[in-house]
Design a protein around this nucleic acid. Structure first.
Lengths: 109, 109
DNA sequence: TCTTTTTATCGTAATATTACAATATAATGG
DNA sequence: CCATTATATTGTAATATTACGATAAAAAGA
């Protein structure tokens, strides 16, 4: 089949899965890291840094944008990308809550 | 092409991506939630709860196991699954550090 | 041993993802 | 307007993922 049965899961489960999927690629993690380390918006320098074709990076940026993790503003000829603080914070809290919800049980195998 | 260029990324980037990918599906999030909420190992009840075929769930469990997020112990006829506390904690810390590394920059678009 | 129960694996179809070349688009500078 | 620069989109090939039916495997009980 190949298509996820979205309808049988909760809104929250689907939302979290979509966000995680957007982050779940080394190139996209690398992109996020670069934006974060630059501590400003990144305009164009991404293609030289990563060893991927321009089209591929554009595609990855699009996915990050679709997930709401980054935002791009047109700055003359180039586009400047930065983290979308609201979504970033939201996902951080959501994930943190998820990880914290696990308490090592007393009676387990 | 269809295959990720793992070799051009760092060890850390690849590791994090693999873990996130393992979590990045609503069914696998649902499975993790169930194990966590049960607060003990889950033996078999997963198929009835989720609306997916037994083979599909077994496949998802395998991926979570491969990523080291859960562990399964054979308990008579059935297999009991629980969170792998070490990996869980590791991923939690890793992700938390990643999210915290972002500081909203002063000069941005 | 035979049956039952539970989980894993195999085979397969449908769809998604990843990557890149080629090309399009959009803004700037001459 | 034309060339340049930066990014997006399109088309396409290779591979991965998702899902399920069918079947295998493994342990328990009759």
């Amino acid at each position: 089949m190949g298509l996820t049965k979205t309808e049988i899961f909760t809104e929250g489960q689907n939302r979290l899965a979509v966000m995680l999927k957007a982050m779940a690629h080394p190139a996209r993690i690398a992109i996020l890291e670069q934006i974060i380390n630059a501590n400003t918006c990144i305009c164009g320098d991404l293609v030289e840094e990563l060893g991927l074709a321009q089209a591929t990076i554009s595609q990855h940026l699009k996915e990050l944008k679709n997930a709401g993790l980054i935002q791009g503003t047109i700055e003359g000829v180039s586009v400047c990308y930065c983290i979308e603080p609201k979504t970033w914070e939201l996902l951080h809290k959501n994930l943190d809550g998820f990880f914290r919800s696990y308490k090592e049980p007393a009676n387990c195998c």
